[in-house]
Design a protein around this nucleic acid. Structure first.
Length: 218
DNA sequence: GTTGAGCGTT
């Protein structure tokens, strides 16, 4: 629940979401509530956190009922120092009302760029990013092939400097921690491990299946 | 425990 206390039911349909960037890691929704509530009625405030550490990511989302209040909040809180950090308030580009923001009078009512903190913030257009992001996702198929090649090359490069002085036994014992890069992914579904020793010899390594290019390659 | 461009959960 994004309710930070007395927040009612947030309506994503008629509400305007504001993105607050440059927020201190210690700043919470409760700290931003009195600040944004001054310029208008805050519907809801949400501060995304990291799933790994649980720490805030450094930005928050503020929802308003009317764009007027949102714009007023942006004009008033944008560039304001909060918790010793200068925050940047701007409209979200992913919200349902993103189009209204672009075609709305928000842009017209702001003909004079304050140029206070936007000068050193060369943020790219999200429209292009959105398309670019989709393009990257489709390139994942080819990314896999490149991954194998890179890995192969890495193996070759390693046999020229390290594997040379290390015994296979030593590598095998420590191969569990420094060998497979997927040791950090507990998900079994993600790592099907297509190449696994069919014989239960108890040797995770496959010296026979994968001959060393150093010795078998003059 | 850290960090500093960016886009979010029941």
């Amino acid at each position: 629940m994004s309710r930070s206390g007395r927040f009612g039911q947030p309506d994503n349909r008629d509400t305007f979401s504001l993105l607050v960037l440059n927020v201190s890691f210690r700043t919470t929704a409760d700290d931003l509530f009195p600040l944004f509530d001054r310029y208008g009625e805050v519907i809801d405030i949400y501060v995304p956190r990291d799933h790994r550490t649980g720490n805030p990511r450094g930005f928050a989302f503020v929802r308003y009922n009317y764009e007027d209040e949102a714009q007023d909040s942006v004009d008033g809180l944008d560039g304001r120092k909060v918790d010793g950090r200068v925050i940047m308030v701007q409209f979200d580009k992913y919200g349902p009302n993103a189009e209204k923001i672009h075609r709305g009078r928000i842009k017209e009512e702001n003909p004079k760029p304050r140029g206070r903190f936007r000068s050193h913030s060369p943020r790219r257009r999200y429209q292009d990013d959105y398309r670019d992001r989709d393009y990257r996702r489709r390139s994942w198929s080819r990314s896999r092939e490149r991954s194998e090649q890179d890995r192969n090359r890495d193996s070759d490069h390693r046999c020229h400097s390290k594997t040379r002085s290390i015994s296979p036994d030593y590598d095998r014992k420590h191969s569990r921690y420094s060998g497979p890069p997927a040791h950090r992914s507990p998900s079994h579904s993600r790592s099907p491990s297509p190449r696994r020793a069919p014989s239960g010899e108890g040797t995770p390594s496959r010296p026979r299946d994968r001959p060393s290019p150093c010795s078998g390659n003059p």
